[in-house]
Design a binder for these strands. Sequence first.
DNA 1: ACTATCCATAAGGTAATCTAATGCAAAGGC
DNA 2: GCCTTTGCATTAGATTACCTTATGGATAGT
Lengths: 291, 291
Amino acid sequence: MRRPRLNSLRTFEAAARRLSFSLAAEELNISQAAVSQQMRALEAYLGAPLFHRHHRRISLTSVGRTYLSAVQEALDRLDTITDQLFPDRPDQSVSIRCSSMVATLWLAPRIDAFRRAFSHIDLHIRTLDYEPLPNQQPSTDFEVLVAPQNSETPLMRPLFDAQILPVASAGFLAGQGVRRPQDLLACNLIHILGYENDWHRWFKTHHTGTVTLPHGLTVDSSLFAIDAALRGDGVILGRRPFIDKYLQSGALKQVFAPPLALSSTYYLRHHAGRQTTRNKQAVFDWLLAQG
Amino acid sequence: MRRPRLNSLRTFEAAARRLSFSLAAEELNISQAAVSQQMRALEAYLGAPLFHRHHRRISLTSVGRTYLSAVQEALDRLDTITDQLFPDRPDQSVSIRCSSMVATLWLAPRIDAFRRAFSHIDLHIRTLDYEPLPNQQPSTDFEVLVAPQNSETPLMRPLFDAQILPVASAGFLAGQGVRRPQDLLACNLIHILGYENDWHRWFKTHHTGTVTLPHGLTVDSSLFAIDAALRGDGVILGRRPFIDKYLQSGALKQVFAPPLALSSTYYLRHHAGRQTTRNKQAVFDWLLAQG
DNA sequence: ACTATCCATAAGGTAATCTAATGCAAAGGC
DNA sequence: GCCTTTGCATTAGATTACCTTATGGATAGT
């Protein structure tokens, strides 16, 4: 006897509130045609038109207006109680742990696209620059981390390869005349806590002979290091693709021609201990595609 | 952010109210497996169990109980306002016009099956024994009527062929010794208003020679005629399949061996003037399959 | 023990729903 | 006025959600 197509009431609410099928479609992340069809079906089911169709706009019929307020009230009530009773729905939020550099320079620029692709999913970002304790229960769904090559498993897939190479501001470089790796030893090298070894690795790879590293500035975050380099405080071991935008804008310059770089692989790890849902899997795949 | 699978709330309401997936499935006309899957999906979505699973029964969790009352209130509200605003939903009811005999002896025995097949559809039966005025707007979706053979069109399909043959109660026949058609002329023939011609047709077909019909009892409805025959008041021209159940039980007997019968075709007509919906089409097909 | 009952699960099919492409009509820009 | 843009309708085809059938496990009743 009674059975409105409940899902289509969500569509009706949006279309009636926005007074536009197109805007409702955008809001619901479906096509305009889908809204049109659903409304046609709903009206056929109810046996009365809900909308007046004008040339380039729609308006509510009298009964449509009445129905809208009733539907809004019922859906509001339902949504409110659902949110109250089930505040954190695992399938509706995704948490990801990564360094502040990854968060700021890789993830943040993609958040807009993320929201477009997954408008109904909350994204929780937790930045932690230190290494996780190996035996600890993971607290996030995903994690972006650096690991040796060939670390790939189904739950830990390569995201991108980072190039680690010396960069500095154009202004800083102009005054130094750096040509060969060993010339760098005379410059202000900027060090990052937790990554102290990188300069050693770099010199070991690209310079033969013993090296005594100058200790100019040491900062505790890659982001600060980049800031310092942008201000012309010295040379950092920058990591592409994070610093690509500064290289493109010319704010930072590569000290040498491309080959003089280290490489390390960033992985995206899926913590299987936590419940794996369809949505999380979709986000996992989307993030990989961004790599 | 928020998006409960609205349709599954209907299932939840039924399952929680009946405290049984099987009974809910029956009520909703879906399989038990479908209920089980929907509840699993809903719980996964909400991130919390709604039911305790016991050995052969389920019970609500505390949060499930709270959710049930909220969902019931919201759905009730929605259903109430929908029924108020749209009292006659064309897709939710089907009307059919037929004679009282067809209604009582053909349709009524099938109503149970109909409700099982279309539990959400209201069936309106209008019995009218007189012929419809040809140029009048049809007031029902379907109509069962007798028409000449070869009357078939896409909108008017043959439902079954009725055999018209003399029958009477066993007790009545025992006292009469009827052997040949003309023996009938000495019996009480029961006539039906509107079908007066049938006896003439029968004698014309199965008896050569002029006939003067005895006029015993005349009733204004086939149902009364059958009643009269059951009481032993005389012989009627009964119509199979309507009287099949009396023949099977022995309450009525065929006066002659089977060949001595007339035949007429009952059709199911679909009134296209009225809105044709998916449901109405399904009912049309179902009725034809019953024929 | 044995049977019947109820829920869970998996595989596969059906039906609902969506998208992409296109049409149409009117409004707004030039 | 003509042209472009905008918004809804419609269709066919693809995709996804949903349902059914079949099966298994567990237990309560016989």
